[in-house]
């Protein structure tokens, strides 16, 4: 590990000032991703500005909107009764992630900015366009079983590993930032990027930008009827191989509002807008949900070893929508492939 200087910030202003002007410095949250990447030689900061001691509060304002401080730990957020009741999908996503020990360390800001778990990215002896621009992407021909089936590029096929980010996208959250260029408030769906020809950037943030809070709109009928489902290689303590955050409102058998966000399939949480548009205004039925997901996933471009993800997230989403809408799953169709599957 490279040597580094260390300082701890007592306020947001101090944190930004401490980092400002030093391209070699990084913020330190709980350290559960950054310290690991430093040990692996993937991250090599010359200075750390510890922001884990900034105020860590969850505040609800008069109109009910929730403001989550960036230093709030994942465990505290998951257990917060306002989150559990008003936004169950967020609590469930957090509790489905990592371990009790890690959630006690992990911060809300750090969770959003954790890097991909692509094996080549984490191994400095291998080429990787995300780590070393222009060096190539061995995952295409190599180990890509856990990587993207949607929105990937010639340069990079990595996925974003955060469960929390998938839930926040379904909740129309905003990320509040401040930095050298001043304050900003970024819709969650625009916070993470697709890789395009610059996979080095996971998000729209610029160096020196500090996440200060995550804001959730006031709880609604939609957000209260929400949930998270995650498929992984063991029953607990593993990253998603496919996940889905959903929320749905049904009035007299007709869907009036819906959110479907797919996780572990793209470089960012994948808001399934095509599926949402197909579902809204139609009947709440397994058949309608299946057709909508198939439409969305017709855009999927899986690789030889990860084509299983397409029917996986389709079935996770359909099952979860049926459950939240209180309708029967159509037994015959679950498990059916889609165009992209089984090749």
């Amino acid at each position: 590990m490279r040597e580094f200087a260390y300082g701890s910030a007592e306020s947001v202003e101090q944190a930004v000032a401490m980092l400002d002007g030093d391209p070699d410095a990084m913020f330190l949250g709980g350290g559960t991703n950054l310290v690991d990447l430093m040990r692996l030689g993937v991250a090599t900061p010359g200075r750390l500005v510890d922001i884990s001691r900034l105020p860590a509060t969850v505040e609800q304002n008069e109109d009910g909107a929730l403001r989550i401080g960036a230093a709030v730990r994942n465990s505290d957020l998951a257990a917060d009764p306002r989150v559990r009741r008003g936004y169950p999908v967020l609590s469930e996503a957090l509790l489905a992630g990592a371990s009790g020990q890690l959630r006690n360390l992990a911060t809300s800001g750090g969770n959003l900015l954790q890097r991909t778990r692509c094996l080549y990215f984490q191994d400095v002896t291998k080429p990787c366009n995300k780590r070393e621009p222009g060096s190539g992407c061995p995952a295409r021909e190599g180990l890509h079983r856990d990587l993207a089936v949607l929105g990937h590029s010639e340069a990079c096929i990595a996925t974003h590993p955060s469960d929390m980010a998938v839930a926040l996208t379904a909740l129309d959250a905003h990320v509040v930032v401040t930095g050298p260029a001043g304050p900003g408030r970024i819709p969650m769906d625009e916070f993470h990027r697709l890789p395009g020809d610059d996979p080095t950037r996971d998000t729209v943030l610029r160096h020196g930008d500090l996440i200060t809070a995550i804001e959730l709109p006031a709880p609604s009928e939609l957000s209260r009827n929400s949930g998270y489902r995650k498929a992984r290689d063991r029953a607990s303590f593993a990253f998603a191989i496919g996940s889905v955050a959903t929320a749905i409102t049904v009035v007299d058998g007709t869907v009036t509002d819906v959110r479907v966000v797919l996780g572990a399939v793209a470089h960012k949480p994948w808001r399934a807008r095509v599926a949402e548009q197909a579902i809204i205004g139609g009947p709440a039925s397994a058949h309608a949900f299946e057709a909508a997901l198939d439409l969305e996933l017709s855009a999927a471009q899986p690789f030889p070893d990860n084509a299983f993800k397409v029917p996986l997230v389709r079935n996770l989403a359909v099952g979860q929508l049926c459950r939240l809408a209180g309708v029967e799953m159509s037994v015959g169709s679950v498990g059916a492939g889609t165009d992209g599957a089984g090749r």
Partner: peptide, 22 residues
């Protein structure tokens, strides 16, 4: 620690970065 020390002027940007990153 002394927090707000400015960017280290002494560090050479061309210092070898070595894949093994030590």
């Amino acid at each position: 620690h002394s927090p707000a020390t400015a960017a280290d002027p002494g560090r050479s940007p061309t210092a070898p970065s070595g894949a093994s990153s030590d």
